[in-house]
Simulated assay, not measured.
Amino acid sequence: MKQVVRMCDVSFDAKLFETFQCGTPLDDLLSSHVGLPRGVNYMIIGDPGVGKTTIILDLMANVQMSYPEARMLFISAEMNEIDFSVYIERYPKFAQLPILFIESDFDEAVRNWELVRSVVEEGWDVVAIDSFYELQGIIREEEGIRMKDAESWLLKLIKQQNKAQNSRHVNTTFLTIQQVTKSGNFVGSNRLKHSITAMMELKLDNPKNIYSDRYITFSKHRRGDVGVKLYYSLSSMGDVFFDEARFQKDQHIKHVQSKVSGQIRDFADQFDKLFNQEEL
């Protein structure tokens, strides 16, 4: 039975508050402490073709190169080995990432839910799922349960790993790609929405033009800022290109706007005080 606690009485391992830095401007968006936190859940959404999978694989590959001791796991419920080989041609560094391919083949000897759970419980620092909805559907069909129950199974597993209930006792971070409807709305229950730490959105400047500029922003973020845009391009080979100059310029403009807004508020407060004194 759960007990009421005071946070001043709760202690954590200091390592829990360290971050994984991928060495790109994306670090500044991932958290206010710069980098990807441990034991959190980030949901990634965006229209088809905007680059959700590529951005996440690039992030994980960069973290793996910077932290050789960190264990990365990519769970693919949408691509098989042949599909993935296309990514390797463009981004050779992805070849070093451990991948668990999940396919709905309805083989009674292979239960995908048991496979996912046993592999995840080995203990990984970062686990990416592509996509949550597809994996949820595979579990629902193979286990003969409702989508709601399949979601509960996955969320329970994720929360257990967040709290280091695995063989390595590490607080696992999950990067979960999720599908959206044709109107761009999030696919999933309110429970799923509330369970995530941050919602990363990949968008087009012009939603009707797939060739328009692309950017990353957070619409929900318990560990960082919302509304900040980081533009990127997938046209180069080997690495995702992040427009750092544009990002720094936008940050400077926002800082100036915030400073001016503060000065205007201070001036308004001083005027109100002076006006009220004159009335007295």
Score class of each variant (00 low, 15 high):
233 S>Y: 01
215 Y>Q: 05
201 E>K: 14
271 F>T: 05
233 S>W: 01
185 N>D: 12
235 S>W: 01
217 T>K: 01
193 K>N: 02
186 F>R: 06
204 L>R: 10
211 Y>Q: 07
237 M>F: 13
206 N>G: 01
183 S>L: 05
266 D>R: 15
244 E>A: 03
210 I>G: 11
216 I>P: 00
235 S>K: 04
273 K>C: 03
181 T>Q: 09
185 N>L: 14
234 L>I: 08
201 E>V: 15
259 K>M: 07
229 K>N: 03
201 E>G: 10
220 K>F: 09
260 V>E: 01
181 T>H: 10
205 D>N: 09
184 G>R: 02
232 Y>C: 05
240 V>G: 09
269 D>L: 07
264 I>C: 04
261 S>W: 09
260 V>H: 06
240 V>S: 01
270 Q>A: 14
185 N>A: 14
270 Q>G: 07
247 F>P: 03
195 S>K: 02
241 F>L: 08
228 V>T: 10
208 K>Q: 13
215 Y>N: 05
229 K>M: 05
194 H>T: 08
209 N>D: 15
230 L>V: 09
216 I>N: 02
220 K>D: 12
234 L>N: 06
178 Q>H: 14
262 G>F: 04
264 I>Y: 02
236 S>F: 05
195 S>D: 10
266 D>E: 15
192 L>F: 08
182 K>V: 14
234 L>G: 01
205 D>R: 06
229 K>C: 08
238 G>K: 12
273 K>F: 12
187 V>P: 00
270 Q>T: 13
252 H>Q: 09
250 D>N: 06
224 G>S: 08
189 S>C: 03
273 K>D: 10
245 A>E: 15
194 H>W: 05
237 M>S: 09
257 Q>D: 06
180 V>L: 01
200 M>S: 11
242 F>M: 11
230 L>M: 10
186 F>S: 08
253 I>E: 13
259 K>P: 08
250 D>S: 03
195 S>C: 02
221 H>C: 00
178 Q>R: 11
254 K>R: 15
213 D>P: 05
246 R>S: 12
212 S>H: 04
214 R>Q: 01
224 G>F: 07
231 Y>C: 07
267 F>K: 14
268 A>E: 13
199 M>G: 04
231 Y>W: 12
229 K>I: 01
230 L>R: 07
224 G>V: 12
246 R>W: 04
188 G>N: 03
214 R>H: 00
225 D>L: 13
254 K>P: 07
185 N>M: 15
220 K>Y: 08
215 Y>F: 12
253 I>S: 03
203 K>S: 10
241 F>G: 05
223 R>S: 12
217 T>H: 02
187 V>I: 11
201 E>R: 15
210 I>D: 03
242 F>V: 07
272 D>W: 11
218 F>Y: 08
261 S>K: 14
215 Y>T: 09
181 T>D: 14
214 R>L: 00
235 S>H: 02
224 G>W: 04
256 V>S: 05
179 Q>V: 13
195 S>I: 03
210 I>S: 11
272 D>E: 15
181 T>G: 11
269 D>Q: 12
204 L>V: 00
214 R>D: 00
263 Q>T: 05
184 G>T: 04
